[in-house]
């Protein structure tokens, strides 16, 4: 896996956790919201391994609900206490990383 792919994988976990923190939601809605926010390089299926990972770590809880329209059952995600803690850690790290990377990339541009 390339460095940029690894970076995207890590960021997607934080982004999805951030979306679930805004209220109970489900897979397709998460994807739509990510696209609305212009989250880059996202394919429809890539969110499900992340959701499984977040569930395993106990950051999100899930509930299966019957569909109102007679379609298949839908799995809804909510954030847990440990998920909120992890999100806070992610946000702090992201703020520092973002600042540091911007400074670094500016210096790269200056050198060019």
């Amino acid at each position: 896996m390339t460095v940029s792919n690894q970076m995207m994988k890590g960021l997607l976990d934080g982004a999805i956790l951030g979306l679930i923190a805004q209220g109970e939601t489900y897979g397709y809605e998460i994807l739509e919201k990510l696209k609305e926010k212009d989250f880059p390089e996202i394919s429809d299926g890539s969110i499900y391994p992340v959701l499984l990972r977040l569930g395993k770590k106990g950051y999100v809880s899930t509930q299966m609900k019957k569909s109102d329209t007679g379609g298949p059952k839908r799995k809804y995600y909510s954030i847990t206490g440990s998920g909120l803690e992890e999100l806070e850690i992610f946000r702090n790290k992201w703020t520092y990383l973002n600042r540091g990377m911007n400074n670094l990339m500016r210096s790269v541009e200056d050198a060019e």
Binding site: Y26, G27, Y28, G45, Y48, P72, K73, R74, K75
Partner: peptide, 9 residues
Amino acid sequence: ELEEELRDH
């Protein structure tokens, strides 16, 4: 569970 979720998607 995964199959149901992907079916919904």
